[in-house]
């Protein structure tokens, strides 16, 4: 194969982690490569935090392995290639943004200049302010700047846009896309599915410590093959619900809503049986539907 060799920057291989009797991760495989954004999705308690903890060397796997740049995550040299934004990170309120950046930059061998950090994270005018005096959204931006100030090859972003307004969120998305385009690998965990849908090259869905789906956004979405069909029609709901390929049908007055395995045969029959049909609309499942379906199936 004439593919450029692109080894994983971070990977879990058969990683298992137990807390007492509770299994947090049940032998999962994850790999993040340069120039790609991997979104780790899953409900609370699915094992996302544990997976990140293993990759950052905060936890040790009971079984299997965690590697950062091919080394143990405990290695300082390996962690120097990593930038991180943790949702749970406490950052000292009394320090100024400039001081926080100066300290975190000192951990890295070849950090970004202060001016670059300010520009990338949109910190104009905040640099001399104390962290504790900033708004929630401004604090998120500072955390993002701290994550990228070391010029990392790999970024861990744990719920990076929680509490941001739409404009700020899109600003951050733009910055993340630029970093990925520059060859940075990103592991993103998020509750916002549209965030994963908009940013991710690949998605891993975790539930109860297991990988229930992984692949591109389109592949994960394809796990849910159903289509949602809406239309104005005089056909009786009870009859439509009996058609082959129809999973369910409901009506709100004249408005029919049908969930079908495949849209085409159902639409063809709808049009054939009701010449007066209008407002036809067909939707494929989004990542959100796939996600709900996948985590429910596994439950």
């Amino acid at each position: 194969m004439a593919r450029v060799f692109n080894p994983p920057l971070a990977e879990l291989v058969g990683a298992r982690k137990r807390y007492g009797r509770q299994v947090a991760l049940d032998g999962i495989d994850i790999a993040v490569r340069g120039g790609e954004l991997l979104a780790l999705l899953g409900p609370n308690g699915a094992g996302k935090t544990t997976a990140i903890g293993l990759l950052l060397g905060l936890l040790d796997a009971d079984d299997g392995s965690a590697r950062l740049f091919g080394e143990s995550p405990h290695s300082l040299a390996a962690r120097r290639g990593v930038g991180l934004m943790l949702q749970s990170a406490g950052i000292p309120d009394t320090l100024k943004v400039r001081e926080l950046l100066e300290l975190t930059r000192s951990y890295y061998p070849d950090p970004r200049s202060l001016a670059d950090c300010v520009a990338l994270a949109g910190l104009d005018g905040l640099i001399e302010r104390r962290y504790g005096k900033l708004s929630g959204g401004q604090q998120r931006r500072v955390q993002f700047a701290l994550a990228l100030c070391g010029r990392p090859r790999l970024l861990f972003l744990d719920e990076p846009t929680t509490g941001l307004d739409i404009e700020a969120r899109q600003g951050l998305w733009k910055a993340i896309r630029e970093l990925v385009a520059d060859g940075c690998g990103v592991l993103l965990t998020t509750h916002y599915l549209e965030e994963a849908e908009s940013l991710a090259d690949r998605v891993v869905v975790l539930n109860r410590g297991e990988v229930v789906a992984s692949g591109t956004v389109a592949e994960v979405r394809a796990h849910v093959s159903q289509r949602r069909i809406r239309c104005q029609s005089s056909l009786s709901v009870a009859r439509v619900a009996q058609w082959p390929g129809v999973r369910s049908a409901s009506a709100d007055g004249e408005r029919l809503e049908i969930v079908a395995d495949a849209a085409e045969p159902v639409v063809r029959r709808l049009l054939a049986e009701d010449a007066g049909l209008s407002d036809l609309e067909v939707q494929r499942a989004g990542l959100a539907d796939a996600f709900i379906e996948l985590t429910r199936e596994a439950a």
């Binding site: 950052l56 060397g57 905060l58 300082l76 962690r79 120097r80 990593v82 991180l84 943790l86 749970s88 990170a89 406490g90 950052i91 000292p92 975190t104 951990y107 890295y108 070391g150």
Partner: peptide
Amino acid sequence: AIERDNGQLEYKRALPMPP
């Protein structure tokens, strides 16, 4: 105690801070 509670110690441990 405060830094253990608010996640600062963990964040620092994950950063490439010298030991």
